[in-house]
Nucleic acid binder design. Sequence first.
DNA 1: TAAAAAATTTAGACTAATCTAAAATATGGA
DNA 2: TCCATATTTTAGATTAGTCTAAATTTTTTA
Lengths: 217, 217
Amino acid sequence: MNTLAEENYLKCIYHLSADAGIVSTNQIAASLNTKASSVTDMLKKLADKVLINYTRYQGVSLTPAGEKIAVGIIRKHRLWEYFLVEKLNFKWDQVHDMAEEMEHISSEELIDRLDEFMGHPKHDPHGDPIPDCNGKFKSAELKPLSTLTVNQCGVISGVRDHSSPFLQYLEKQQLTIGKTITITDIIEYDHSVALKLEANKEIHISREVANNLLIAL
Amino acid sequence: MNTLAEENYLKCIYHLSADAGIVSTNQIAASLNTKASSVTDMLKKLADKVLINYTRYQGVSLTPAGEKIAVGIIRKHRLWEYFLVEKLNFKWDQVHDMAEEMEHISSEELIDRLDEFMGHPKHDPHGDPIPDCNGKFKSAELKPLSTLTVNQCGVISGVRDHSSPFLQYLEKQQLTIGKTITITDIIEYDHSVALKLEANKEIHISREVANNLLIAL
DNA sequence: TAAAAAATTTAGACTAATCTAAAATATGGA
DNA sequence: TCCATATTTTAGATTAGTCTAAATTTTTTA
Ligand SMILES: [Mn+2]
Ligand SMILES: [Mn+2]
Ligand SMILES: [Mn+2]
Ligand SMILES: [Mn+2]
């Protein structure tokens, strides 16, 4: 099997290539808080195992084998996050670091049974889709709240920033997954947004928050 | 914190010293499937961290700090085994290897909530006691079935061999934790044992099996 | 299109954990 | 008590993963 470090690199490359397609050494180094030279060493190893496509100086992408492993790890990460929130009553801002460890528990059988135990959830506590046991999943088309216009309405369905401070802020403002919102005003000066929650509660959020909140229309 | 290898050494020393008090380098090497020279290296490191008492050539014992860590790992191991059997419907012979990985998940909060989620179980699927969140537990006084005499009766409460083949054999014979048995005969020639289960089912087991089945009187 | 700057790789070193082979120490039987 | 044997430790390597510093390649820009 693969080492913990290898798994983390594959997962990282998977996430980065969602945006970019081809991923650079420096992007990986920044994302993993490591040095570019360490990344190069690992890329050689992953290329030897045919888990990535790699040519010197040209960046990397996952092979089908590498992608399969990455998706498997993401499945485990999100299922454990769901477990921690739904069964052990953690808050959505507390579970990521624990899931970072738990995603490396190797048993497939274990994760499939966990999936079944929880009723095959489709989304993790942050709105991210959970791949099924074949690695299949469809990501809903979500737009940053900042791209909506006045009077548009939609459902909060994901976040682009998974950090605790952001998630805690959202929780406090009741801006949680599943809530319906309607844009009431956009302040031109600073691009901040006024919006209405259910129960007619009015909220005012900054451009930065609006950028990191994902909405299904 | 401690590395995975360090945690495994501490747990190993804890289990070995239950029998012996002081534990030898070779005992540890045999138990961990490693070489005595590797053990010596690790013992120096653990002694530097004041987790074991170690003097060259004299064997080791755990310090209070080392014992606390070891008991914490054993708590995690047994709680995860309980979870796998009670919530995910694994058989008692399937869970040990998975728990070997899960016992290294670091969060204390996680394990305490898991404990609560399951209703603070007192014993794992193999009858071993589960330490509470302060590391306290009492091990019942159990005797190998082989030490009982004819007509004595008792309750199956633990096993000394945790291997899959043994556990599967017990399951097939319905010799599982909680069952009441009565000795009906002891064959002098090979020290094999005849016994009666509930529902008057008669079973005949070898001396070896009798040695590895633990009974509460 | 040739520097200059940025990105990436290589070279050489370090730590943790392991190994084999050799040396040191302890132990038990004559 | 002494020596043969068993146990344990030391010495010297190895592998995975990381680092810094230097060299190389690519990209930008003037
Ligand atoms: Mn996460
Ligand atoms: Mn998540
Ligand atoms: Mn076990
Ligand atoms: Mn057990």
